[in-house]
Amino acid sequence: MLKLEDYHHQDPTWCRGCGLYGLFSAFKKVAFSLKIKPEKMSIISGIGCHGRLNSYFNAYGFHSLHGRTLPIAQGVKLANTQLSVVAVSGDGDAYSIGLGHFIHSLRRNVDMTYIVVNNRIYGLTQGQTSPTSRMNFVSPSTPYGSKEQPLEGLQMALAAGGSFIARGFSGAPQQLASLITAGMKHKGFSLVEVLSPCVTHNKIDTYQLFKSVIFDVDKDPNYDPTNKNKAWKIFSRHGDKLPVGLIYKETRPSFEEQSLPGRKPLAFLDLVPEAGKIEKILEKFE
């Protein structure tokens, strides 16, 4: 019998009050509720405070390079489609240095879950401006204020053909857990952005602030997450306010369903082909 503690490898050492604690506990609960054996999970993280998450979690973990979580995670999933693959990134990892992979992963639609922990700052490198920092944000890298527009990951994801787009808040771990659960059940690429305060470096985007700007589409009976037009409109419905909940979901075949239908995981194939099979192909060169 699996227990919740089976997913706990060691106690985190994030700053007290960090939003990542909320994600960590929600994520363990998800794995437990889905009864995924720890050895059947592979968690790939990037560089940033979020990158420690998989070393605290008990599962196969891969702490990779800055920005390269997604290609590595897709490689893992394609090599072994029986694994539950989850990639975790920060806003720098996902929306800055790894942005190219973000867009293409959404359209490729490999069956995996991508959690983007958005704290609107570079925490691990001591508080520089990030691509999601607001205009005129003052930080050690922009002492006179940032002069760039913040980037909206979820709207890009919708434009890029994402098949599951959701946003949670680390201050609301229950909803976050249910969004990650739905994402992991989704057959395709599921994106769950997590608004997650950096209590040490970001004194503006606090729990208080996030609470005051979010509105929950899951609680709106008129909202239909399968309607793309509604999804587009929701981003601007309440001015600058941010929607949380399941924003968009569609059913379409995953990349591997189309390219690896019903096959044994590549990782465990018998590599010796039947006799004469390659020889036959080589006849074309004669």
Binding site: F62, R68, I72, G75, V76, K77, L83, P265, L266, F268
Partner: peptide, 12 residues
Amino acid sequence: NMALGASYAGTR
């Protein structure tokens, strides 16, 4: 990186 991911998971 995709090749590294696949190799880590066991595929040549």
